[in-house]
Design a binder for these strands. Structure first.
Lengths: 201, 201
DNA sequence: ACACACATGTAATTGGTTACATGATTTC
DNA sequence: GAAATCATGTAACCAATTACATGTGTGT
């Protein structure tokens, strides 16, 4: 049986946190794995129906925050087995598509300021995300450091932070490089003399 | 008029390198922007038809490598204008979906070795990509350093390398951390006493 | 003769976003 | 009573992958 990725995010979240509604599941996703994973309602609600039909989750109620509207769910043993099975499989890395890098790569065909504008935007985005991660980190640490899942959360966080820092450092040098129109970094002196016979760029 | 992303990759590639066939375009994509962008034939060929209909590219022939089969294309002034327009627009960063990080995040529900296996795979992938980038770099530098597009190619490359290095460093520490099952990094002494009342993990 | 790379395309399917539609509960 | 947030869902659309189908030219 083939299942889309949304399946496993929902199962994973419910395995950690039972008794959540579709609405809440989405919020939890945003707050925990949001910086590397997103789900839309158009994906979540149909998935909840399907997973219920497949007995991987069950409608449940925790009593407390009952609302006429709302339906919450919990993971079943079958659901947990399904999640574990998926976790044991090697992850697939889907071919990346980075529009920022694409626009930067083609920037010789753009107006002069375009490249630097893209880089600045990239820099701002990275700063913003880094700030939220660094804000979240001590809070989560205080609340969850005893939890068995904490170490894995930490690992994802630290990779995120490391990548963001690398990007921000790169932004500095990229802006510097793009601001000084003359300086082309050369590996040695002879490169200036246009060896470009068979261009690939 | 709304156009998919494939449009602009094709235009961008043909702006740099005219007289390429669909087959070649794909190859060029793999060799130049391959580490952050991919296109499939199922996307390229229909796009070429559509772009021809929209007069953004034209069927052309360079004479030399003519084949009964093959049809090559070049960008038109209209196509170039379209590309420039797109390049001037702010890039959109689509919500990332990193399956590796997702599996790592949920790893407390997996078998003990799973997390470390995922990390090792991630490490190998990063090493492989880094190796190809480092292999390509001096070649491209020698052939293209005089080219106006070279600096942008360099920028994308250096970001790629920086990110890959950051990931590889992280891999080291992640494997170390996962190999020593006891050590949970604590921010201070009191965190041990399970302050976890309101768990988020 | 065979394999491999070159070359082009279509059809089925999926995975996903976005917009739309609706309504309940809380808070100010 | 207005606004915000909580809450659920559907329909239309789209971008893209994958598998399939077919054929040509080159090198061994």
């Amino acid at each position: 049986m083939k299942r889309c990725q949304t399946t496993y995010v929902i199962l994973g979240i419910l395995a950690i946190h039972p008794h959540q509604s579709g609405y809440e599941i989405r919020k939890t996703i945003q707050q925990s794995v949001g910086f590397f994973w997103g789900e839309s309602f158009g994906q979540i609600y149909p998935s909840l129906k399907r997973l219920t039909a497949e007995k991987l989750i069950v409608p449940s109620s925790s009593g407390s925050k009952a609302r006429a509207n709302r339906q919450e769910y919990s993971i079943t043993p079958a659901g947990h087995a399904c999640l574990q099975q998926w976790l044991a499989l090697p992850y697939r890395d889907d071919p990346p598509r980075n529009q920022f890098l694409l626009k930067l790569f083609f920037a010789r065909d753009a107006s002069p300021g375009a490249a630097i504008a893209h880089v600045r935007r990239f820099q701002e985005n990275n700063r913003r995300v880094l700030a939220t991660l660094e804000f979240l980190e001590p809070l989560a640490r205080a609340n969850n450091s005893a939890n068995p899942g904490f170490r894995y959360w930490m690992l994802t966080m630290s990779l995120g932070v490391a990548q963001l820092r690398a990007c921000l450092e790169w932004c500095e040098s990229a802006i510097a490089m793009l601001s000084a129109p003359e300086a082309i970094p050369a590996s040695n002196a002879t490169t200036e003399k246009s060896l470009s016979a068979t261009n690939k760029l």
